[in-house]
Design a protein around this nucleic acid. Structure first.
Length: 566
RNA sequence: UGGGGCGUCGACAAGCGGUUAAGUCGCCAGAUUUUGAUUCUGGUAUUCGCAGGUUCAAAUCCUGCCGCCCCAGCCA
């Protein structure tokens, strides 16, 4: 019995450097309400890296009795759409197991952003620049070389006001001009070299439709959006560190009062043997290397959901890996272990033979059958029991038989006694092979005294195997997943990452046989195929006549190690 | 070669001048087991990127090196 009492259900307390930041701020400003936000751009699907951010933001708010909302950073209509918005809401709700959070949109603040831009112009801190994108880029300089001031930098305030209003009403075409902040073209931090504030886009916005001809840039919109939402702690990943001075500059110069929302950066999550970047995932989808954004082999939230990962398991994982100022490189096995720990407590146990061969019990009365009552989950007696059918002709796993087996092989080999789980002790009497030496069927005799899988004598039967009755079992298909890439760090590769796709990333068992009970269960019940792994019904690939199961994660297996040792 | 970060066990990660340098995963050994699963017990960094220095005392402070990451979108 599993006595481990690990807490999975709540969004838990964290203990990381951001905690310390908040605690320090709370000492200085005891009256503030901690307010965080998760700010995705609706231009793609959420993945495990976003989960880390979502959980960080929401758990910190919960921990300090504050507020966290979902805010869409929908400031670039070229790449955003309503489908992504809907998908993100669905994924966040699924991860958090609640839809009790407030949703904001940066686009709802467009009028305020505009007023802030006008204020900057009035102060002589912004100007309209008609340089071409190429010129802007060239004049920005390089890390080691300072930039060159644009000729439009000295335009009068009155003229800038006039020109900007023309931008607003759509007098110019895309790319013709931008509004830039007037900061310092010689600044050592390139972000501060007169960054763009507004650019012209005649694209229709998913929510604002055609109301706007200009759209604010991230650096301008994000800090102002945080301020409008009363965000106290604005958490983002490390690559935005260079943008922090600009974040503060915009707040300072648009009349916001201190304390400003505080931007704090944390390390990004990377997983071994897979990719998380939107660009790479999109290429896999576009070139149909995978099944779509919800392919069970990738770590999008929808992909993980389809594969059978649970929100609590993902939460436990994010908590376990922690949050620091280092980008972390983590083996997916750690995620899998978290999911195993949860599913071990909750999954319904069922027997399924992935790769079946026949087992004939030669001394079992012909035509006879019987029923065993078995626990649904030995870790949780309250989960109840169900019946399984037994007879003299069963299916067992092909790999549970071996001809010249080593001593410590506790399965079917000539003369060896093994236990059929819940049923009887059987002794292997014959192994049939085909011309290639592959096992085709096995014969055995059973001990009628061992009914239930136990005898009163002190006989030790080391091996226990799972089985299904030929007559009653149902056909199903099972998919087992291996890493999508044969390279440990495909994310570090350029476009050649595509050359490292693992040809064996899906192992399909087409002729699996599963006990009848499993068929009566609801679609979203997490199962454990005894001795094999945790499984979940694939809603896309299942048909009325045949269920497709995805192996979420395999059970740990120390067999290989032990055999090699001996 | 500019600016900003980061380097503590195989992977994460606490520690922030005095601790035997937490914890998790992994790994190793043993116990229990009708899932070779689970569970349980024990082991697993004399040392904190390297080299100097300050101090009675340094992973923690100082100096200098070395390695890695980010920044030159009218993306976020």
């Amino acid at each position: 019995m599993n006595t481990k009492t690990k807490e999975y259900t709540s969004i838990q307390e964290s203990n990381n450097f951001i905690d310390k930041v908040i605690q320090t701020d709370l000492r200085e400003y005891p009256d503030i309400t901690v307010h965080t936000r998760f700010p995705p751009e609706p231009n793609g699907y959420l993945h495990i890296g976003h989960a880390k951010s979502i959980l960080l933001n929401f758990s910190l708010a919960t921990q300090y009795k504050g507020i966290c909302n979902l805010r869409f950073d929908d400031t670039n209509p070229d790449r955003e759409n309503q489908e992504f918005i809907n998908a993100i809401i669905e994924d966040v709700s699924w991860l958090l197991e609640t839809d009790n959070f407030v949703i904001h949109y940066a686009s709802d603040y467009f009028s305020t952003y505009l007023a802030c831009a006008r204020l900057l112009i009035d102060k002589g801190l912004a100007y309209v620049d008609f340089s071409s994108p190429e010129e802007v880029r060239l004049n920005r300089g390089t890390p080691t070389q300072q930039g060159i001031e644009s000729t439009y930098r000295s335009t009068s305030i009155e003229e800038n006001k006039r020109l900007f209003e023309k931008m607003v009403v759509g007098s110019y075409d895309d790319g013709e001009c931008i509004l830039r902040a007037k900061i310092d073209m010689a600044h050592p931090n390139i972000v501060m070299r007169d960054p763009p504030i507004y650019r012209i886009k005649k694209t229709s916005h998913p929510r604002q439709k055609d109301a706007w001809k200009i759209y604010p840039m991230y650096d301008f919109a994000h800090c102002l959006g945080d301020a409008m939402d009363n965000v106290t702690h604005s958490l983002c990943t490390l690559e935005f560190e260079n943008n922090r001075p600009l974040y503060d500059w915009f707040l300072e110069n648009t009349g916001h009062r201190r304390p400003f929302p505080k931007q704090t950066e944390f390390g990004r999550l990377s997983l071994n043997e897979t990719v998380l970047s939107k660009r790479k995932l999109k290429r896999l989808v576009d070139e149909q290397k995978i099944d779509g954004w919800d392919d069970p082999r990738i770590y999008t939230l929808c992909g993980m959901r389809r594969r059978g990962f649970t929100p609590t398991g993902i939460r436990a994982f994010c908590k376990e890996i922690g949050t620091s100022r280092s980008n972390s490189q983590i083996a997916v096995q750690r995620l899998e272990e978290c999911v195993r720990q949860e599913l071990n407590m909750s999954a319904t146990r069922v027997m399924c033979v992935l790769d079946p061969i026949l087992l004939r019990i030669t001394n079992y009365p012909e035509g006879q059958s019987e029923v065993f009552e078995v626990p649904n989950n030995p870790e949780d007696p309250s989960a109840g029991t169900h019946n399984v059918d037994f007879s003299g002709v069963l299916y067992i796993e092909r790999e549970d038989g071996m001809v010249n087996a080593p001593k410590k092989y506790y399965r079917f080999s000539l003369g060896k006694e093994v236990r059929l789980k819940y049923a009887y002790y059987v002794t292997c009497t014959k192994i049939h092979q085909d011309e290639n030496g592959d096992i085709t069927s096995i014969e055995a005799v059973y001990d009628p005294q061992s009914r239930g899988g136990w005898t009163d004598d002190k006989r030790r039967v080391m091996g226990t195997v799972h089985w299904v009755s030929c007559q009653k079992a149902r056909h199903c298909k099972v998919r087992k997943f291996n890493p999508l890439f044969t390279h440990e760090h495909p994310e570090t590769l350029g476009e050649e990452f595509i050359d490292y796709l693992n040809k064996e990333s899906i192992v399909l068992y087409e002729h699996s046989m599963i006990e009848e009970f499993a068929y009566k269960l609801a679609d979203d019940v997490h199962l454990q195929f005894l001795r094999k792994g945790y499984c979940y019904k694939d809603k896309v690939q299942s048909t009325d006549s045949c269920t497709m199961y995805n192996i979420t994660v395999s059970l740990k297996d120390s067999l290989k190690n032990r055999i090699f040792m001996s």
